[in-house]
């Protein structure tokens, strides 16, 4: 059974169709990339999956269970975790406390049990030496790492990454790709939205292209990127 199954998802904001009959599935252990020009409906799709928005029609199933109308915190407990494109750390909590909330509420752990898991995640994403400083004092790269670490602290089955590499330097981006690959190797299913195509294709096994809320291509990253439709959209954007 697919881990995530999306069928006929549709969402309009007034006359703008942000998601137009989108259907796809994500298999357990897969890493799926989603690209598309600005305004293609990528973040809207994430909001529909994570529960920030509810669709006008269509269904979302997680592991066979219908979560179309579940509230955001219920989806987190069911196993969906996300990072935000613009990081939203809990600024007045420390980095460690950011993860602790996620582990205690997202995974229903006691604080003492959660400490061990949070420590290991901080180690994994390279934030250990910042564990006890306020999250509000982090740099952009650290905030992006915190977004990922906090999502991981909920022990997700499905991790949604929203432009986590955006705004980073080339070497920072490379380090992030390595972290994401390691995560994927450890068995986490990943759906990753990204503008930086080479970072994305280095980590995912399948690519979906969105444009004007519609899915216009899907498949092997190399094949998708060389298809005529996708080249047409990206000419002038990808120099």
């Amino acid at each position: 059974m697919s881990l995530l199954e999306i069928r006929g998802l549709r969402k309009c904001f007034g006359s703008v169709v942000a998601a137009d009959d989108i259907t796809f599935a994500v298999e357990p252990g897969e890493a799926l990339g989603i690209i598309g020009p600005n305004g293609a409906g990528k973040t809207t799709l994430f909001n529909l999956i994570a529960g920030g928005l509810f669709p006008d029609s269509g269904t979302i199933h997680l592991d066979g269970r219908d979560i179309t109308t579940a509230r955001p915190h219920e989806r987190c407990i069911a196993g969906v975790a996300r990072s935000y494109q613009i990081p939203r750390p809990f600024e007045t909590l420390t980095v460690f406390e950011n993860l602790l909330v996620a582990a205690v509420y997202g995974r229903r752990k006691s604080e003492a049990d959660a400490a061990q898991a949070c420590g290991e995640i901080l180690d994994q994403v390279g934030l250990m030496r910042r564990a006890n400083v306020l999250a509000g004092s982090l740099t952009l790269l650290e905030r992006k790492r915190l977004e990922m670490a906090r999502a991981l602290a909920t022990s997700p089955r499905l991790l949604l990454l929203d432009e986590i590499a955006g705004g980073l330097t080339e070497s920072e981006c490379g380090a992030l790709v390595d972290t994401i690959k390691a995560l994927h190797d450890s068995g986490v299913t990943i759906v990753w939205i990204e503008h930086i195509v080479h970072a994305l294709t280095a980590a995912v096994g399948r690519l979906i292209v969105l444009n004007f809320g519609r899915k216009i291509a899907e498949g092997n990253p190399d094949a998708v990127m060389s298809s005529a439709d996708v080249r047409h959209i990206y000419i002038g954007i990808e120099a």
């Binding site: 750390p89 205690v104 509420y105």
Partner: peptide, 20 residues
């Protein structure tokens, strides 16, 4: 912990499983 998270970002708090 949940109150601290809600104070800083309600949306992010819900996304990590807090029933705001």
């Amino acid at each position: 912990l949940a109150l601290g998270a809600i104070r800083d970002s309600e949306e992010a708090a819900a996304s990590v499983g807090v029933n705001n």
